[in-house]
Amino acid sequence: MRARVLIRPKEGILDPQGEAVVRALPALGFSGVSNVHVGRLVELDVEDESQLEAMCQKLLANPLIEDYEIQSVG
């Protein structure tokens, strides 16, 4: 299985990268952008997809500060 794990900063934790993007876009002429969050994307081939949850908990994400979402990409 090809899996994709999306990792984002948890709601309520200050995300300075997202804020930097919010500030940078108007400078390029884009308006009306808010609530930006910058995260991480991990793509991986796994033989046993039932292990993905544990992989996220133990290594791919830090559940204290990050939310993650596992997607199948066929």
């Binding site: 300075p16 830090n62 500060i65």
Partner: peptide
């Protein structure tokens, strides 16, 4: 912190 021996986590500086 990652090993769980200490509480919390260290994030990017707010200044980036």
């Amino acid at each position: 912190c990652e090993a769980g021996l200490l509480p919390g986590a260290l994030l990017r500086n707010t200044s980036l």
